[in-house]
Amino acid sequence: MSNILISGITGFVGSNLKKYLEGEYNVIGISRGSNSKEGILSYKELFDYDFSSIKAFVHLAGKAHDLKKVSNDQEYFKVNFELTKDIFDFFLESTCEVFIYMSSVKAVADEIEGELTEGYKSNPITAYGKSKLAAEEYILTKKIPDNKRVYILRPCMIHGPNNKGNLNLLYNFVSKGIPYPFGVYENKRSFLSVENLCSVIKELIEKPVESGIYNVADDVPLSTKELVKIIGDTINKKVKIWSMPKVIINLIAKIGDLLPLPINTERVQKLTENYVVSNEKIKQQIKKELPLSVKEGIKITIKSFNK
């Protein structure tokens, strides 16, 4: 049984990936809070670890986008760039065959026109996006030995059982019978089920796919109104959608920037923006359909909230 090393194993994606791979692989985790009894290494222990038995390294650890805006830029670059740089250098010197770096679509742009493909020009505006892009660019400057494969994955919004975020906010709207007030917006955005992401990672570990950058998203984008209706169908709750004037929405959002309201400017943007991500390149490479449709994945996530 091959060994797989996963950094950030205690996080949302890491814990799901561990469950997904266990049984076929021996999973070894890396985390700031190491626990040898659970097979979790600290980062200090990592650099003393014997890599001769490791088939693949999945680097998930990173500093996530801070919605409260209390983090400084240096924190993002220390974790997302410097740590990645050190780990990737260590990988290149080791006998490990596969390196998978979890970047983000935010390394490209916070707002896009049309559809995001791997050829879209990168111009991130946040420290989070810039730090992710810096790590990507460092990896791409290195010559990859013939016996190794390196993948940079750019997932869009990941969701799954018990994951908190905007889906949880929408669930609260619907479950409590609160009308969804943004019906005036016509948008499309891509989502990514954590099971689909885990499936892609497993395929990259096992298949001789060409090294490079790959977007990861579910097949079909959804409007937020479609999303609200799926939530209602999943929990058997009648959905109310209001088309509140945008000027009133913007006013309430600005108040929410100052007071602890469930709606603020950033959340309104997330719920109503267009952000469509193409997954054609990765699907052509792995030559396999994703296990879950976007609606199936959303329903699984919502059912976990409903429990």
Rank of each mutant, 00 (worst) to 15 (best):
I6C: 00
T84I: 11
A56C: 08
S223D: 06
I6Q: 01
N123D: 14
G119T: 04
E118W: 12
N279T: 03
T234E: 00
E137I: 07
R189S: 12
V105M: 12
G33Q: 12
V268Q: 03
S34L: 04
S131R: 13
N16Y: 15
T301A: 15
F12V: 06
E75N: 03
S293M: 14
L251A: 10
N162M: 08
S7M: 14
E93F: 08
K121L: 14
N264D: 15
V70H: 04
F182E: 09
K283M: 09
I252D: 06
P221R: 06
I40K: 02
K295I: 15
E97L: 03
G232P: 02
L5N: 01
V200K: 13
P124L: 08
Y185I: 08
V294D: 08
K307W: 04
F77S: 13
D86K: 15
I249H: 10
G212M: 10
S122R: 01
I201Q: 00
V27N: 11
K69C: 01
E137W: 07
L5W: 00
E296M: 12
G11F: 09
S211Q: 03
M244I: 04
D146F: 06
Y275A: 03
E45W: 07
L167C: 06
V200G: 09
Q285M: 10
I144A: 10
L41G: 02
N35Q: 10
S2I: 02
V209N: 06
G297S: 13
P124R: 03
E136D: 11
V70Y: 02
K121W: 04
K283G: 11
Y275H: 04
K37L: 09
Y128K: 02
P260L: 11
G119D: 08
N35A: 10
N279H: 07
Y138V: 11
F88I: 02
K188A: 07
R154H: 07
A61Y: 14
L21D: 09
L133H: 11
E118S: 01
A134V: 01
I248E: 01
K281Q: 02
Q74I: 10
A61P: 08
H65W: 01
F88V: 05
E118Y: 07
E118L: 05
T95A: 03
S15L: 13
S36C: 08
Y138T: 02
V228Y: 13
Q269T: 15
V184G: 12
V268G: 09
K225N: 05
Y275D: 03
V105I: 15
N306R: 09
T234C: 04
T224L: 12
K44W: 07
G256R: 07
E45M: 02
I298C: 12
I213A: 11
P161E: 15
K69P: 01
V108F: 14
Q74P: 04
T141R: 15
N166Q: 12
K55P: 01
P124K: 07
P161W: 05
V268H: 09
K270L: 15
V79E: 06
E38D: 15
Y138N: 10
S304C: 13
F99V: 06
A134C: 07
I178M: 04
Y120C: 01
I30L: 00
E82C: 06
L60F: 02
D48C: 08
M102S: 11
N279R: 10
K240V: 11
I201G: 14
G177M: 04
E118A: 13
L227G: 04
D218C: 08
L83Q: 10
L153H: 13
L60C: 05
E111P: 00
M157W: 12
I213P: 05
E118R: 05
I213N: 10
I6T: 03
F90V: 02
I255D: 05
